[in-house]
C-alpha cells in the first residue's frame, strides 16, 4: 500500500512539473491560468492520496478547501482577463 501511494504521488508530481513548465512558457495569460487551475485540481488528488495513506480525514478537508480556492481563483482570473489583449 505504501509503495502504491508513493508511486501515485510521484506520478502526480511529474504531472505538476509538466504543468509548471506550461506556466513558465505561457505564451498567453489564459495558458498560464489553465495550467495553474490544473495544478490545483491535481493537488486535490494529491491530498486524497495522502489522506488514504495516513487514514486521516484532515487531508480531505485540505482538498475541499483547495478545490474551492482554485475554482474561485480561476473564476476571478477569467473575469479579470476577459477582453484584455495579451500578446506577450
Amino acid at each position: 500500500m505504501t509503495a502504491f501511494v508513493y508511486t501515485g504521488l510521484s506520478v502526480l508530481m511529474i504531472g505538476i512539473f509538466l504543468c509548471l513548465r506550461r506556466v513558465a512558457s505561457g505564451p498567453t495569460a489564459p495558458d498560464r491560468t489553465v495550467a495553474i487551475e490544473i495544478i490545483g485540481i491535481i493537488l486535490v488528488g494529491f491530498c486524497t492520496l495522502l489522506s488514504i495513506h495516513t487514514g486521516e480525514d484532515f487531508y480531505m478537508s485540505v482538498a475541499i478547501g483547495w478545490a474551492l480556492l482554485s475554482f474561485i481563483g480561476s473564476l476571478a482570473l477569467g473575469k479579470y482577463l476577459e477582453g484584455r489583449e495579451f500578446d506577450e
Binding site: 498567453t28 489564459p30 491560468t33 489553465v34 487551475e37 482554485s70 475554482f71 480561476s74 473564476l75 482570473l77 477569467g78 473575469k79 479579470y80 482577463l81 476577459e82 477582453g83 484584455r84 489583449e85 495579451f86
Partner: peptide
C-alpha cells in the same frame, strides 16, 4: 465552469 470562464476570456481577448 471555470474552464468555460477561461475559454471565454481567451476568446474575448
Amino acid at each position: 465552469a471555470s474552464a468555460h470562464v477561461i475559454a471565454r476570456a481567451a476568446h474575448s481577448s
